[in-house]
Design a protein around this nucleic acid. Structure first.
Lengths: 219, 219
DNA sequence: ACCTGAACACCGTTCAAGT
DNA sequence: ACCTGAACACCGTTCAAGT
């Protein structure tokens, strides 16, 4: 190995990894450019050579977190099992980093990162025979629930560890993992029901490629 | 009227209202204690006589916003119509103030404000014949979706108005109001379906007060 | 009861300049 | 290519002191 390699100090990826470490140890509120600079033994201004601003750094972190979603085994398990599995895998990935849900939610809204999460959910949903548009719409709705639930969960975790949660202040005493499964179930059950997308049950239109739920006939 | 009333300068409520005005005009990120102080012609430190910290001020704002949820007319409309109506009323109340959803979501997690929103949803759901625990669990799940969807919607609104939304960066091109209705439908349809709360459809247990969905028999 | 003045310990970002 | 040094325009919060 070359003992006198180039005096290259930091890379964009290295900075992102250091940021991820701070996120996990201190949380999003304490992930500051100045603290990150200190952890890299560098002046704050140095970071702006690697990233144009803090927001784009956070977008990279969101992508990293979502990219780590565990691959869901392709089994022959009947729909909607794969949807539940994808949702659970996404939850786990968000829980793997402190404030993961809040971070992903904020960058998703800016259209900067975390996009992969929707795609995965949509693909799993499409396995139920829904058309692309319906699958995506449902995936976005499910994603909002997932981010909301896990974000709430993570906020509570942090205040718990600070010992400052007012007693009885929880929205519900159902254990987080069960509350999550319950919500996902509501979604997939709703998707599976016949008269979706209409406010009143109506017979599905005939002679078209999809019924009122955007469901394609099984091949 | 007494011309020489006491030299009382500001009240807690007055400060909260001024904060609400700043929230609406500038958004949550620009609602700073210093800016609020300036708008009241007061030093920043003066605010700390009315509120122990910024967080408790924000909690008051969340309560104000949620308290303004339009009363949903008690009609004889069949369930789940009242649930849809409550969800829509909550969305409107959140949309009435810039960043309303984000504000309510953050204070809800701390157990500091916005609690009324869950109760209203739970009551509407209970109208479908579910027991209190099930109704609340479902309300919390629905609330997470509502806050997520509206929060996303409001973030997009702001970046739109700044003209800085990357083209094609939307999660979905469904109009917000329709995406919202779609998500709520998924929920209430799921709730209405028979085999809720179990991962596999099973015959409802017999001889008990509720079925597997926590549903009580109609009186 | 309500506020001022001054301070403390922070932020994100820019930009000329160095190596 | 990568970073320093210095500055700009901010934050939330505390606390003694004023009226």
């Amino acid at each position: 190995m070359p003992a006198d390699s180039a005096p290259r100090r930091h890379t964009r990826d290295g900075v992102a990894l250091a940021a991820l470490a701070i996120l996990d140890e201190w949380g999003l509120a304490d992930l500051t450019m100045r603290r990150l600079a200190t952890s890299l033994d560098v002046q704050p201004s140095a970071l702006y050579w690697h990233f144009p601003n803090k927001q784009s750094l956070l977008a990279d972190l969101a992508d990293l977190i979502v990219a780590r979603v565990r691959p869901v085994a392709v089994t022959d398990a009947a729909w909607p099992e794969p949807v539940r599995a994808e949702a659970a895998a996404l939850r786990d990935a968000l829980l793997a980093y402190r404030d993961g849900a809040e971070l992903v939610a904020s960058t998703l809204a800016l259209g900067l990162g975390g996009e992969a999460s929707v795609t995965r959910l949509a693909d799993a949903i499409a396995g139920g025979g829904f058309d692309a548009a319906t699958s995506r719409r449902a995936a976005v709705a499910l994603l909002h629930f997932v981010l909301g639930q896990v974000g709430y969960e993570q906020q509570r975790l942090q205040f718990d560890s600070l010992g400052v949660v007012p007693a009885g202040s929880a929205l519900d005493d159902t254990p987080p993992h069960e509350a999550f499964a319950f919500g996902v179930d509501l979604f997939v059950t709703g998707l599976g029901a016949p008269h979706l997308g209409t406010h009143n049950a109506r017979p599905a239109p005939t002679g078209r490629g999809t019924d009122a739920a955007g469901r394609r006939p099984r091949a």
